[in-house]
Design a protein around this nucleic acid. Structure first.
Length: 185
DNA sequence: GTATCGATGATCT
DNA sequence: GATCATCGATACC
């Protein structure tokens, strides 16, 4: 089912576009279709795994399908899905098109604007109310579900966002013309 | 519409 | 002490 996660991160990042990500707990289900991702590998100067394993990035060196969450700029959490073969690769989930639990997500984000509920890596974590304790857990043993869907999209790629190194590497994937991505192509 | 800037704290040097 | 895989507010065109 999740075999495709074992591919290298740039392949997995493209294949994750169009999958549905859903979190389920006592507050119900909420989630959406993945419409924007970025790939990171251990040989990539922009990656947290570039200088080897540390306490923070340990989850990136676990098996494919492990969840890697980290805190950035003091307050924001970002969600990654580990890919590759326990070699420090992961895919950052950058944006969702909301499908489930939209009222819940509007309350979490204190916003009624549908296209802005999950249009950024920290926004979607806030919208789904993902706990940082997911870090290091495997998808199949967690409350986070990753589902294949039949929807097909036209996928575009570009340089990654918000990094200072390896900005020329086109490892960002997104749904062409989607209003739900973090910023226009 | 685009550009710039401060918040904010864990992680690493 | 410097560096952030960000966001939202503000200023300006």
């Amino acid at each position: 089912m999740l075999d495709f996660l074992h591919a290298d991160a740039w392949e997995t990042a493209e294949k994750l576009i169009g999958c549905e990500l859903v979190y389920n707990d006592h507050n119900g289900k909420r989630g959406g279709i993945i419409v924007e991702t970025e790939a990171y590998t251990a040989s990539d100067p922009a990656s947290h795994s570039y200088k080897g394993r540390t306490v923070r990035n340990a989850a990136m060196f676990e098996s494919a399908g492990t969840i890697y969450m980290y805190q950035i700029y003091g307050k924001h959490l970002c969600l990654n899905i580990v890919s590759g073969n326990s070699d420090g690769q992961a895919v950052l989930i950058r944006a969702l098109e909301p499908t489930k639990g939209i009222d819940f997500m509007k309350r979490q984000r204190r916003s009624d604007i549908l296209t802005q509920l999950c249009s950024g890596p920290a926004k979607l974590v806030e919208a789904l109310a993902l706990p940082k304790q997911l870090n290091g857990q495997h998808l199949q043993k967690s409350r986070l579900l990753l589902l294949k869907t039949s929807r097909k999209f036209e996928i575009s790629r570009s340089g990654r966002i918000g990094i200072t190194k390896a900005t020329e590497t086109d490892w960002r994937f997104y749904v062409k013309d989607s209003p739900f991505i973090s910023r226009p192509g």
